[in-house]
Amino acid sequence: MDLKALYNQIIVENSRAVHNRHKVEHATAVLEGVNPSCGDDITLELKVSDGIIKDAGFTGTGCAISQASTSMMIDLITGKTVEEAKNFLNLFYGMIKGDITDDDQLEVLDDIVSLKGISHMPGRVKCAVLAWHTLEEALDGKTESKGCSDGEL
């Protein structure tokens, strides 16, 4: 995999990330996700009503991969139902683990398919997964994240 090409995509995504960097008014879920091994730290805010994610945003700091992944995830889930978001979660985990490689199957993930190459970079998987892990816990009603450690999706 060409890492430098992957980074090109990530940089474009990050320049677009600004619109997702905000707190959410009347949020129904606010959850901080942390990667203890590197200090990446994002807070995801969601407003869910009638089973639909009406609004989502994030604050925090981290590497380019974690920030791009978070922003693209927010673009994807905003306006979708919780069930759809959970489906995206499974597809994303499958892609990052390298279990799902079929582009047709991954098509619904849209731009996020650009992170597919991370599946060959075990050291950076947790960067890409942090936001998704936090989303999963937030949708499950957790109020405290257990964080995301190496080798765990």
Binding site: L3, S37, C38, D40, C63, A64, G123
Partner: peptide, 22 residues
């Protein structure tokens, strides 16, 4: 303006191993 993990990954793509983190 570059996160240490991104620096380390870009160096790694040139075969250079450095540590990044706390």
């Amino acid at each position: 303006e570059v996160h240490p993990h991104d620096t380390a990954s870009l160096l790694d793509s040139d075969g250079i191993t450095v540590r990044a983190g706390h």
